[in-house]
């Protein structure tokens, strides 16, 4: 059963076509990735979903057209967007605060989750005192406590160093298995998409179209070392090939 469904969504800024034709769906408890080259308009898609921009085509949530408020989504932007002047605890309760939840209630909801997010003992710290990985976990905690229907993750690990990123991907996969969030991840990292997702939509360069929809057959928990890793490697190579050699049959010139 699909929760989010997009049908032939298009978006142009001025005369520039950014999204040419995007159709996709995300089921309940499914982790779906949108994988595409940088500047392909992946973030524009999230702007349409959260109501910051308007495009053409149909966007449905549980069968109903999306309104402007983006009430279904908890959005995690590129970089962590933690407020430097707020302590970690107050950063993580921000979304609840905006929803009008009383501070004490909001804190009571966040505090039990701190340990699981590796932030126990750091709630009184300022973001500048934390490492990149910890900041990202705080940003994810801020996103999930909003208890929206679906998570929108916009290249959440893009700004991290390679080692931290790999560690965060493993951690996120494990967290997802516990919580089974319905999640849509934007990334340009093929390995990340294969490691985390149930399904992947591969997008073309701008103007973006869906080149291929790929179901990731790998068992969970995802194992970065065992036999499944070879299968993952083959899949990654296949996706990379789609991205680097888009089929000319679609009749699109790259500039």
């Amino acid at each position: 059963m699909s929760r989010l469904e997009l049908r032939h969504v298009r978006k142009a800024f001025g005369g520039l076509d950014v999204l040419a034709d995007i159709s996709l769906s995300v089921g309940a408890g499914e982790f779906v990735s949108i994988l595409g080259p940088s500047g392909a308009g992946k973030s524009t898609l999230f702007q349409l979903l959260t109501g910051a921009e308007h495009g053409e085509g149909e966007m449905l949530f549980d069968g109903m057209p999306l309104d402007d408020h983006g009430r279904h989504f908890a959005f995690m932007p590129q970089r962590d967007a933690l407020m430097p002047w707020r302590r970690i605890l107050d950063n993580t309760t921000l979304g609840l605060e905006v929803q009008g939840v009383r501070r004490q209630v909001a804190r009571a909801r966040v505090v039990p989750l701190l340990a699981e997010f590796g932030l126990a003992g750091f709630e009184r710290h300022f973001p500048a005192q934390l490492s990149g990985g910890m900041r990202q976990r705080a940003a994810l905690l801020r996103t999930v406590v909003q208890e929206r229907d679906m998570l929108l993750l916009d290249e959440p690990f893009g700004a991290l160093d390679a080692l931290t990123r790999a560690a965060m991907q493993r951690w996120l996969e494990q967290m997802w298995r516990h919580h089974r969030w319905t999640a849509l991840l934007i990334t340009h990292d093929v390995r990340e998409a294969v490691f985390l997702s149930d399904r992947i939509y591969v997008l073309s360069a701008r103007p973006a179209r869906v080149l291929r929809e790929i179901t990731v057959p790998l068992p969970r928990p995802r194992d970065p070392t065992g036999a499944a890793a070879q299968q993952a490697g083959a899949l990654e190579a296949e996706i990379l090939d789609i991205l680097l050699n888009p089929q000319p049959s679609k009749g699109h010139d790259h500039d």
């Binding site: 959260t50 910051a52 932007p77 407020m83 921000l94 905006v98 929803q99 909003q146």
Partner: peptide, 14 residues
Amino acid sequence: TEVEIGQMLRAMGA
């Protein structure tokens, strides 16, 4: 103001 913080707050419904 960091652009991302503004985007995020609006997505939160602010």
